[in-house]
């Protein structure tokens, strides 16, 4: 696993299809997925374009600042979402 936190208690599991990645609460989900070799769509990387929107099937995320982009219920913005529990995500609502 590439994501190593100083505080082991704050590791969360991210389930994406058959892949499982461990993430910390130290930085947004997008950067951690990228380091794990997962390509996620992005453009602005600061919450205003909605390109990095992912389906959040289960679990909780928070935003340190409210993003400018509209966040659909049941979705998250990977570039600025901090993962707060084990989560399950998908790229699209129907894949």
């Amino acid at each position: 696993m590439t994501a190593i936190s100083n505080n082991q208690d704050l590791l969360h599991r991210v389930l994406l299809g058959k892949k499982e990645i461990l993430v910390t609460e130290d930085e947004p989900l997008l950067a951690q997925l990228e380091r794990a070799g997962i390509l996620v769509e992005y453009q602005c990387r600061e919450g205003y374009c909605s390109s990095c929107s992912l389906k959040l099937l289960r679990g909780n995320v928070i935003y340190l600042e409210e993003p400018l982009a509209w966040v659909q219920s049941g979705y998250l913005l990977a570039c600025c979402a901090i993962v707060k529990s084990d989560i399950e995500i998908a790229f699209f609502s129907n894949n």
């Binding site: 205003y48 374009c49 909605s50 400018l68 982009a69 509209w70």
Partner: peptide, 11 residues
Amino acid sequence: RDEALHLTGTQ
């Protein structure tokens, strides 16, 4: 960069 903001506005 501007267009990304415009698309968010329309969304």
